[in-house]
Amino acid sequence: MKNNLMEKASKQSNLRMVIKRFRKHKLAVASFYFLCIITILAILAPIIAPYDPNKVTTSFGKPPSAEHLLGTDQIGRDMFSRLLYATRISLFVGFAVTIISTAIGVVLGLISGYFGGWIDILIMRITDTIMSFPYILLVLVAAAIFEPGLWNIILILGFVDWPAVARLVRGNVLSLRETNFVKGDVVAGMPRQYILLSEILPNTIGPVLVNATSVFAISILDEAALSFLGMGVQPPTASLGNILNGAESITILTSKFWLWIPAGVIIILLVLSINFVGDALRDAIDPTAR
């Protein structure tokens, strides 16, 4: 009982230390608030958006005005509303991909590191094979095969992004297995499940979280690139990438800047702030590593 309480207290102070160190990174704190605001805006898109994102209004390709904050596109849809919904889609893709790939990576990494032997060899070979391939090529071929669309993009990216997490977790498990507290558990005859899930897993959460931020950033970039190439989220559903797709036409590029600049700026700001948060988190969790 007493032991339990002390453990709890040390965990709390540990978390407090992480938050304290994170706060020192001003840019990361600002990025964090920015991400929160954007996320809230994206979630509340149906309430905030002044127009239906797919509704055709009477003004075509008009520059920003009081009526349409960011103008309208070629077929008369309100760009501000479309951008809100596009951000929502992009964040959703990033989030879902991160969850899927982290889950796969953590499970395979735990299995590989803890059990070793031929399972380990097999999983690591698969990991190496996926890691050593031109990622975009793999994704493009997959996207062409499984009909591009929102869920397919999420699944494809999710199933391609896990190797880095798996390697990370495996490495951590290997070193944790040699620590005294895990050895103690083994000697005490604790069940495997308990050792894996209650002793080893909590100790790898930090690095996994840091890795998840970079997966989040990369998958937003990848979704945008795929949709830009026409292999991702399909119109009329708005995504930040397929809005930019329109800018390949020279008239939009040269004379209708409001149709492409905002989408690109949102992608940059999103990815940049996620990266800043991830970097500060890495520093906060493990101040000795650089």
Partner: peptide, 22 residues
């Protein structure tokens, strides 16, 4: 350097084409 890795290459391409070509 973070900015460099956060800019989607196709968006930078569009900006460059707009600036240096158009």
């Amino acid at each position: 350097s973070f900015l460099g890795t956060s800019i989607p290459s196709f968006f930078l391409s569009l900006i460059f084409i707009y600036l240096f070509t158009v």
